[in-house]
Structures are given as C-alpha cells and as structure tokens.
Amino acid sequence: MAPIVSIRDLRKSYADGGEALKGVSLDIEEGEIIALLGPNGAGKTTLISTICGITYASSGSVSVGGYDITNDYRKTRAMIGLVPQEITLESFQKVKDSLHFSRGLFNKPRDEALVDQLLKKLSLWDKRDARNMTLSGGMRRRVMIGKALSHQPRILFLDEPTAGVDVELRKDMWDIVSELRKDGVTIILTTHYIEEAEAIADRVGVINGGEMLLVEDKDTLMQRMGAKTMRIDLQQPITEIPAALASYDLRLDDGGAALFYTYDTRSERTGITRLLTDLNNAGLGLRDVQTSQSSLEDIFVDLVKG
C-alpha cells in the first residue's frame, strides 16, 4: 500500500543561513502511530509545520494521500488534523464554538452530534459553554485536541501532546490515541518522553539537527535494547572466574569485586536462577545483585550525541 505521507528530501533553510531540516525523507503508512523523538530545536516542529502548510519548504516534496501539499493543498490539508505544541485559543470563544469553528474552517457542515460526542470523549462536556480563557492549562490542551479532531481527520499530528501535562491527562491522551488508531487514523507525534514512544508508537524516528537519524519499528528497537546486565557484588574479591562458571558469559570487574552477566530478557530462560545456584556452589558469597537495562533513552542519547 502506498504510504499516506511521503516526505522526500525535505529541506528548510532560513535567510540567515540556518538550516532547520537537512534533507529529511520519511514514509508513513496509513493507520500507524509514529513517534518522532528529538531534543529541542531538532526540527520536529518545522517538519510538522511544513507538512501542514504553516511554513514553506526550501526544497523537497511532501505528498499526503497521494496529493502534493502545495498544488493540492485543499485535499491534503482536509485530511490532516494538527495539535500544535503551543496552546493558542481565542480567549473569548466558548469551548463548543471553538470546535464548530474549526470544523467550518475545514469545510465541513455543522454537526452538533459529532461535536457533542467529542466534547464528552475529551471530558469537556461540563465546560462546553465556558469561555476558553476560563479553562485550566490541561483543559485548554483538550480543546486544542477537540479542534483538531472536529473535522474527522485521517491523519493527526500531535506536537508534544503531553509536555507539561498532568498524569491523568497524559493517560487520557494515550487512551484517545489508541481509540483513534482503532478507527484507522494515522498518528504522528513528537515527544520528549521516551516512555511515551514506548507506550503508544508502532515506529520510532529519531531526529536531531534537522536530520532523521533513525526510523525503526519500536519492537526492533526494543530488541536491540533487550539486553540486560546483571551486576553481582561479591563478598570477597576474586582474581579469576572459577572454572565451574566458565559456561556463563561473565565478566569480572571492579578489581575482582563484581561480576557482570549479560542476558536477553526475551529468551525463555535467562539463566539467572542457575547462575545464582552455581555461584553458591562455587562458594562465592553475594553482597548485592542489581540489574540494568539499556533503554530507548540510552540509544537516543547515543544517537543524538554521536
């Protein structure tokens, strides 16, 4: 199936010579959830803004649903809902009217039932007649999402949807995302939170300095990080690994005071129980045991720094 969003060698440079995007290419499949990870200033927002029509690209092309975003902007924009990072709402507008307004902008006839349903789903029903300026930050964020969904987009862009959001709203947001996914909506989200990408994304893209460093299935990525290390602190330092333990992939460190055992959490047998028994049989007293996992965060930091 043709990708629903196809980005080809997209570049964005500014008059002062700064480059926000240095030739980004990416295909996004219909119905998937892709998370774009990257530090501030990486180019995530510029990428989204270009696809949505808020900024011009310097070169390269983007097609949405098979249509070019410049020549067929009406068709492409009609498919897209955008929740920008900054919360910007018309202060005096009522919550309900805000959603109706957005739906109108996207050339859809007024639909009371749909807007009511959205308001309920976003826990905004009680606030439907309140003016936007009277709402709390979290509520405003919900209104922004409601506006983006008011015209039933096929593709939803969420730019840092959970930045500065309380736990409850974050959980709600994830629920909304998974519900939208059931309806077949493609979701592109940018985030700082790696756990967020882990929790809801199908694929993860890492972007930094205007370049896409990596795009991979989350599961593949997780597999790479599946390796876990167990550190075993010994009561008495040893000079070499006892022969009885030679069959394990062990490394002696910390001046002989600690053993490191690397294993795969995904395999059926991690070998931990057997190792501990064998350690005991070899007469080694244990002082402490701890395990650590290389997280998406480690990979991310490695990529961004490298």
Binding site: G53, I54, R74, A78, P84, E86, T88, S102, L105, F106
Partner: peptide
Amino acid sequence: PKFMGTIYELLSAPVS
C-alpha cells in the same frame, strides 16, 4: 490571530 498564535489554524486549513 497573528498576535495570539491562532493563525496556525487558518494557515493549516484548506482555505484559499
């Protein structure tokens, strides 16, 4: 809308 930032919606909507 320019001042408030709400212009983003106008720019990203299918309006000429």
